[in-house]
């Protein structure tokens, strides 16, 4: 059994499709490129494919990841090229590495997400002050509805960095580093709620997904190298 870890992008033209739609789209591209992917057993065979973290509808990304199980060895550059030729506009496979069979899954290791938030500012807003007071808070409550149950969560411990990248009178760009994964997850919109952005003006871009270890960040490709 051979496993490949791939980094890919989801760009503006297809940012409005859901995670499941994206998965189906990639499966079809793999079939078009005649990549020898392994299928699950059973009546409805599915490609053996596992994603790092689902991207919300509307969000673009330059750093998504997926692991793929192949039937036989392929040449990596040729593989990426063949796929990019048949992938629809808006998805590009940028890098790939072979990984060990027992490499931990993306889902189990990814715990940081970095976002760029771009949006229009409210009139006379003081963004710097708003960011500072957000960071000064000990508790930032958000409500999440799941299976018809509303839970209140404190997301403050999961917000690690907010940097203002650029700012004009009307618009601003922020960089955000937050917790993601099964041990806590922050949605960028939840942070933006505390900031003076105009309604419906926010665009979210995921810069990348990372693994935080000993206060340094590494990419899922780095930790996977074998």
């Amino acid at each position: 059994m051979i496993k490949i870890r791939i980094k890919f992008t989801k760009e503006a033209p297809i940012r409005f499709i859901s995670h499941l739609d994206l998965a189906r789209t990639i499966e079809r591209a793999l079939r078009r490129a005649q990549i020898p992917v392994n299928y699950s057993e059973g009546f409805t065979p599915r490609m053996k494919m596992a994603f790092g973290s689902a991207l919300a509808v509307g969000v673009t990304s330059s750093g998504e990841y997926l692991d793929l199980e192949l039937d036989r060895h392929v040449e990596l550059d040729g593989f990426l090229e063949a796929l990019n030729r048949v992938l629809p506009v808006g998805i590009t496979f940028t890098e790939g590495v072979y990984i060990d069979q027992d490499t931990p899954t993306l889902m189990s290791i990814i715990n940081r997400a970095q976002y760029i938030l771009t949006g229009d500012l409210e009139h006379n807003a003081d963004l710097g002050q708003a960011v500072q007071s957000l960071l000064d808070e000990k508790i930032l409550s958000v409500e999440r509805v799941r299976k018809k149950r509303t839970r209140t969560l404190n997301i403050r411990p999961w917000i690690f960095e907010i940097d203002i990248l650029s700012k004009s009178a009307k618009t601003a760009r922020l960089q955000l580093l937050v917790q993601t994964g099964s041990h806590g997850n922050v949605r960028p919109e939840e942070v933006a709620e505390y900031l003076p952005f105009l309604e419906n003006s926010l665009q979210v871009h995921r810069q990348g997904l990372f693994i935080a270890r000993n206060s340094s960040l590494s990419s899922p490709l780095e930790v996977a190298h074998c």
Binding site: A12, P13, I14, F16, I17, S18, D21, T25, R28, V57, G58, P88, V89, G90, N200, Q203
Partner: peptide, 24 residues
């Protein structure tokens, strides 16, 4: 224009209905 659409698509259900750009 795409910029016009980008503003309203987050407000509707299944925006993928209106974005086009599909394969083929």
């Amino acid at each position: 224009h795409w910029e016009q659409l980008e503003r309203i698509l987050p407000l509707v259900a299944k925006p993928g209905r209106y974005t086009g750009n599909e394969l083929n």
